[in-house]
């Protein structure tokens, strides 16, 4: 199949051959959209700056549970009381977090598993339209069971756990709180 379906009528798709009038209308729309709804420059700046968060030595811990989307509906009400629960997994390593909202602040109560004294870094970015410079890192050490309590402002966060005993490092997927 052609990689470029908009170039005339690509083979294999001839039954969907695009009338020239459609092509022209789409072309007009493209121009209009580019003129009337361009990508804001500050959004592009923020996008370019995200490469700074490339993992160098850590494994990605994927979001495997989010009570906001995975919990049964009956849990919705209690969510504001108990907080949102998140689970991240990278092989045998897990990061569990409970998020308690207090105004625009978010208290993260969590644990890095396996339980051990773990070096924790929370990377936080505020609302995107505030610009790319609004990012911060909080470093702390958990108790000897991997437990922690950290406060961050509303925004998007990633947690990094390093187990000194094994040298393992994981970083969680970004999650918006």
């Amino acid at each position: 199949m052609s990689d470029d379906p908009q170039e005339g009528a690509p083979e294999g798709l001839s039954e969907h051959a695009v009338p020239q009038a459609d092509e022209a209308l789409l072309e007009d729309l493209r121009d209009v959209v580019h003129r009337l709804d361009p990508v804001p420059e500050e959004a592009l700046l923020a996008a370019r700056s995200t490469l700074a968060y490339l993992r160098l030595d850590a494994q990605l811990a994927q979001l495997t549970f989010d009570s906001l989307t995975d919990a049964p509906l009956v849990g919705v009400r209690s969510q504001t009381e108990v907080g949102r629960r998140l689970g991240f997994t990278a092989d045998d390593n897990e990061v569990e977090v409970q998020v308690v909202a207090e105004g625009s602040q978010r208290r993260l109560i969590g644990q890095c598993v396996p339980a051990d004294e773990v070096e924790l870094t929370v990377t936080h970015q505020g609302p995107a339209h505030a610009g790319p410079s609004d990012a911060s890192r909080t470093e702390t050490v958990t108790d000897d069971l991997g437990r922690f309590v950290v406060e961050v402002a509303q925004g998007v966060i990633s947690l990094r756990c390093r187990w000194p005993s094994t040298g393992r490092v994981v970083e969680t997927a970004w999650v918006r709180l």
């Binding site: 990508v39 804001p40 500050e42 959004a43 923020a46 996008a47 995200t50 968060y53 970015q125 609302p127 995107a128 339209h129 998007v156 970004w174 918006r176």
Partner: peptide, 9 residues
């Protein structure tokens, strides 16, 4: 803006 930022992250 938030969705844009998250997509690139």
């Amino acid at each position: 803006h938030d969705a844009f930022q998250t997509t690139w992250l």
